[in-house]
Nucleic acid binder design. Structure first.
Length: 298
DNA sequence: GCACAGGTAGATT
DNA sequence: AATCTACCTGTG
């Protein structure tokens, strides 16, 4: 594959994540469009952007297909929340009185939350029900390759190899795709949820955009009106796609770790979520990401 | 062949 | 309100 990349450019993250933490950020369940390349770089995409990231000396560098270069810089900084010092934020979590949290923080220094586009975060997490990361990534790749507009059009670019360089279909585009066609992207019963959600959004212009700006509790309640969206998925969409750091998604991993480490045996997910928001405070979602990374690595 | 996977919704106690 | 169960299908 030979087409033009921009030059590698420095990326100043505070703090600089190590290799394990970077993998956790890009491939740990916040998003599903990053793939490790043979040379160790991470290739990923969001909205109409595509980049590669790699460790370089004591920092990180990034590049993008030359055709996208003029557009990508500020967008990348926003996506990675570069202007936020995540070590400083993590320091405000109650780790001084919570030894398990302290251990999780130490295990993934430099962990950060991405600022993803709201709509594609919703799409990804509608795909996520009872699926592992590898499989969600496969669904995402197929949706992009088959139904998303191509980002880079160069004669030397083999589109078969480069689903990374398609964007995900927009909700307006998804609304026009028959459910049976969606099923061919390995979505299973999730195809119906995505189809129905797409039809709902098509019938309610502005609904998604206004939901993203509502206070947390109202936004969560509205998202739960969508078919296939319950509390867990709503919290993921708000945490990873709307910067609502107080959202505390409770999946089976968190349920397990909150039972084992915090004594919440037998608690239902909704109560664990409430406990998490109270115990960990306004940045509960960041705490959740540390707990999740730590538990999943075991 | 069969259990299982980062949930949700609808039915049944 | 708490507890089942079906929903799809690739993977091990």
């Amino acid at each position: 594959m030979s087409f033009a990349w921009s030059d590698w450019q420095p990326l100043a993250l505070k703090p600089v994540p190590n290799a394990a933490t970077l993998a956790e950020i890009l491939d740990g369940g916040q998003t599903f469009r990053w793939h490790r390349q043979p040379d160790g770089a991470w290739r990923g995409a969001w909205a109409d952007r595509a980049v590669e990231l790699k460790a370089s000396g004591d920092g990180l560098r990034w590049r993008t297909p030359a055709a996208l270069a003029p557009l990508t810089d500020p967008s990348l900084h926003d996506y990675l929340a570069v202007d936020t010092d995540w070590a400083e934020l993590a320091d405000t979590l109650p780790w001084r009185s919570d030894t398990h949290l302290a251990r999780c923080l130490a295990a993934f220094p430099g962990l950060r939350l991405l600022r993803q586009p709201f709509g594609e975060t919703l799409l990804h997490f509608l795909c996520s029900a009872t699926k592992q990361i590898v499989q969600i990534k496969q669904m995402s790749s197929l949706l992009a390759a088959r139904h998303g507009a191509r980002l880079v059009s160069l004669p030397t670019l083999d589109s078969q190899l480069s689903t990374d360089f398609h964007r995900l279909p927009t909700w307006a585009e998804l609304a026009e795709i028959p459910e049976a066609e969606l099923r061919r992207c390995l979505l299973g019963f999730r195809a119906r949820y995505i189809h129905q959600t797409a039809r709902f959004l098509a019938a309610h212009p502005g609904w998604l955009e206004s939901t993203a700006t509502l206070p947390y509790a109202e936004a969560r309640a509205r998202l739960c009106e969508l078919p296939g969206v319950g509390g867990k998925i709503a919290d993921c969409v708000l945490l990873f796609g709307a910067g609502r750091l107080e959202a505390f998604p409770v999946d089976v991993w968190i349920l397990k770790t909150m039972a084992a480490r915090y004594g919440l045996h037998g608690w239902p997910p909704a109560q664990v979520a409430q406990f998490g928001r109270v115990h960990f405070g306004p940045l509960a979602g960041l705490a959740q990401q540390y707990l999740f990374a730590f538990e999943r690595r075991r």
